[in-house]
Structures are given as structure tokens and as C-alpha cells.
Amino acid sequence: MASRFPLLHTEPMTQRVILATVMDRLAIDAVITGYARAVDDADWAAYRGLFAPGGRADYRSAGGIEGPAGEVAAWLAETMRLFLVRQHLIVNRRVEIQDLGGYPGDRADVTADYINPMRTDRGGAPSTAPDFVSGGRYAFVLRRMDGRTDGDWRLTRAVVHEKWRRTDN
């Protein structure tokens, strides 16, 4: 009998594998949500903590830099000072967990659309209405740390593919 939960494209799975896959998806989702919140809240320690050792981020399509997560966090910390208000909305997440013959592996690829309204510092103007909005798609690569099975996923790569932006000058 085929599984009622086609989380992986495999033969029927045991309930244990289904549960493990659901738990992996929840853990991966928490990393992606943590990513948005870290940037919006200027929590650069949390941002760095989302990346595996050697993890990299690429913001070149949005006019930024590419490099190790720590260097990119420092660049973001400086750049994001320009924006008093930030809110990344990361939606339409497509999660593909490595398939090891019917069992989830230690790698996941996530694509997700984003919209990012922000408000620049206009010399103390009281408005919080956004005057800079961009949108596009993220491509994230994650791995389970040290082959553990407790859902401890970290980013190895985060790439921004900005598709559009609007500024109110």
C-alpha cells in the first residue's frame, strides 16, 4: 500500500521515516524563519549561528557581497543601519530533502520567494511606511550537522536572487 504522505518520492515509508521527515521539515523551516528574523532584528550573532562552519552567503544580485557568513554578517550590520524598519517575508517555501533510498539524508535544498519592505532613515521623519521594497527568490542549502538526527540543520549557502525593487525617492 502506498504512503498517504508523499514527503519524499519513494516507496511506502514507515511511520518512523514519515515522522523524521516531518521533524526535519519543521527544523529546516525554523532555520529559514530564523534567518529572516535575524536580519530584521539586526541580530548578527544569531545570523552567524544559522550557518554551518564554512557557510557562505551571496547578496550580489541585490548589490551586495558574497563570502563567508561572518564577513557577510559584518557587511549586513553596516548596510542595514540605513534602514530603520525591515521586514523580510519569506514565503512559498519548497523544501527538498536528500533522498537516500526512502530515507531522509543530511542535505536539503530550499527555494523561497521573498518580499522585503524597508524604511530608510530620512533624518528623523516620523513615518514608518516603507520607501524601499524588493522581491525575489532565495536559494538555501542546508545540512544536518555531524550526521545527527535531532534536527540540527545549518545553512551552508544562502543566495539572494533579487528580481525587482521599488524605491520612493
Results as ranks from 00 to 15, higher is better:
residue 25 R to T: 12
residue 27 A to G: 05
residue 31 V to P: 07
residue 31 V to G: 05
residue 32 I to Q: 02
residue 32 I to T: 07
residue 33 T to A: 14
residue 33 T to P: 00
residue 34 G to E: 05
residue 34 G to S: 10
residue 35 Y to G: 02
residue 36 A to I: 01
residue 36 A to R: 01
residue 37 R to G: 02
residue 39 V to S: 06
residue 40 D to V: 10
residue 41 D to P: 00
residue 41 D to K: 14
residue 42 A to W: 04
residue 42 A to D: 13
residue 44 W to D: 10
residue 47 Y to M: 03
residue 48 R to Q: 14
residue 48 R to Y: 04
residue 48 R to F: 05
residue 50 L to E: 01
residue 50 L to Y: 08
residue 51 F to V: 03
residue 54 G to L: 09
residue 57 A to G: 11
residue 57 A to Q: 10
residue 57 A to V: 01
residue 57 A to F: 00
residue 57 A to T: 02
residue 58 D to E: 11
residue 59 Y to N: 08
residue 59 Y to P: 04
residue 60 R to D: 00
residue 62 A to I: 08
residue 63 G to E: 02
residue 65 I to C: 06
residue 65 I to W: 04
residue 67 G to R: 13
residue 67 G to T: 09
residue 68 P to H: 12
residue 69 A to F: 04
residue 69 A to G: 09
residue 70 G to H: 07
residue 70 G to V: 04
residue 70 G to A: 15
residue 71 E to R: 12
residue 73 A to Q: 05
residue 74 A to E: 15
residue 75 W to N: 12
residue 76 L to P: 00
residue 79 T to L: 12
residue 79 T to V: 08
residue 80 M to E: 14
residue 81 R to T: 15
residue 82 L to K: 13
residue 82 L to E: 10
residue 82 L to Q: 13
residue 83 F to P: 08
residue 83 F to I: 07
residue 83 F to T: 09
residue 84 L to W: 01
residue 86 R to V: 02
residue 86 R to T: 15
residue 87 Q to V: 07
residue 87 Q to F: 11
residue 88 H to V: 05
residue 89 L to W: 09
residue 90 I to H: 01
residue 91 V to S: 14
residue 91 V to P: 01
residue 92 N to E: 05
residue 92 N to C: 09
residue 93 R to C: 03
residue 94 R to D: 03
residue 96 E to F: 01
residue 99 D to W: 10
residue 99 D to L: 13
residue 103 Y to A: 14
residue 103 Y to W: 06
residue 107 R to C: 07
residue 110 V to H: 09
residue 110 V to P: 05
residue 110 V to G: 09
residue 110 V to A: 00
residue 112 A to R: 06
residue 114 Y to D: 00
residue 116 N to G: 01
residue 116 N to K: 01
residue 118 M to V: 05
residue 118 M to D: 00
residue 118 M to H: 11
residue 119 R to C: 05
residue 119 R to Y: 02
residue 122 R to S: 11
residue 125 A to K: 07
residue 125 A to M: 00
residue 126 P to H: 08
residue 126 P to M: 11
residue 128 T to Q: 11
residue 129 A to C: 00
residue 129 A to K: 13
residue 131 D to P: 05
residue 131 D to Q: 06
residue 132 F to H: 12
residue 133 V to Y: 01
residue 134 S to M: 15
residue 137 R to M: 11
residue 139 A to R: 15
residue 142 L to W: 01
residue 142 L to P: 07
residue 143 R to F: 00
residue 145 M to A: 13
residue 146 D to G: 12
residue 147 G to E: 01
residue 147 G to D: 02
residue 147 G to C: 07
residue 148 R to V: 03
residue 149 T to L: 11
residue 150 D to A: 04
residue 151 G to Y: 02
residue 152 D to A: 15
residue 154 R to Y: 01
residue 154 R to L: 13
residue 154 R to Q: 14
residue 156 T to C: 12
residue 156 T to D: 09
residue 158 A to V: 10
residue 159 V to K: 14
residue 159 V to H: 03
residue 159 V to D: 04
residue 160 V to D: 07
residue 161 H to D: 12
residue 162 E to M: 15
residue 163 K to G: 09
residue 164 W to V: 04
residue 165 R to P: 00
residue 167 T to C: 02
